[in-house]
Simulated scan of single mutants.
Amino acid sequence: MAGVKDVARLAGVSVATVSRVLNDSAPVTEETRARVLAAVAELGYRPNGVARSLRTDTTRTVGLVIGDILNPFFTELARAVEDEARSAGYSVVIGNADERPGRQDHYVRTLLEQRVDGLLLCPTAEITPLVRDVVRDGGPLVFLDRTLPGLDVPTVRADGTAAIGELVAHLARLGHRRVAFVSGPALLSTGRERTEAFVAALRANGLPVRPEYLEAGDFQAASGRASAARLLDLPEPPEVIFAGDNLMALGALDEIRARGLAIPGDVGLASYDDVPWFTHVDPPVTAIAQPVQDLGRRAVRALLERIARRPVEPEVLAARLVVRRSCGEPGPDRGAEDLAVRPLGAGPQGGDLTKEGSGPA
Rank of each mutant, 00 (worst) to 15 (best):
E239H: 11
T124I: 05
R310C: 00
A125S: 15
R20V: 01
D274G: 08
P129E: 08
R115H: 10
Q114Y: 05
A340F: 07
E193K: 14
R310W: 01
A125F: 02
W277T: 14
E126L: 04
D24A: 09
A169W: 10
A249P: 04
I69K: 13
R225T: 07
A204G: 10
F219Y: 14
D68A: 07
Q104P: 00
P330H: 12
G139L: 01
R297H: 10
A51I: 05
A252H: 04
V267W: 07
P276K: 11
V7E: 09
L54F: 02
L77H: 13
G95L: 03
A186M: 07
I69S: 11
E113G: 08
H106C: 00
R100L: 04
A162L: 09
S223M: 07
R33V: 04
S91V: 06
V131T: 15
L174N: 13
V50L: 06
R109H: 12
R325P: 00
L317Q: 11
V312E: 06
G44M: 04
G95D: 05
L144G: 03
P72E: 08
S91P: 00
A2Y: 08
G138M: 01
A221I: 10
H176K: 12
A39E: 08
A88M: 00
I164P: 03
T75M: 05
E329D: 06
I66G: 01
A80H: 02
D352Q: 08
R173H: 10
L353Q: 15
A318V: 08
V93L: 14
W277D: 06
R132L: 01
D57T: 13
G89K: 02
D233I: 10
L119V: 13
V209D: 14
L250Q: 14
L174W: 11
S223G: 11
G67M: 08
L321F: 08
E315G: 03
A222H: 13
G251N: 08
R301Y: 00
R35M: 06
G184C: 10
P284L: 05
E212S: 11
R342L: 09
E76Q: 15
D218F: 06
G350Q: 10
P332W: 12
V168Y: 10
L148N: 07
V300G: 01
V267R: 14
T161L: 02
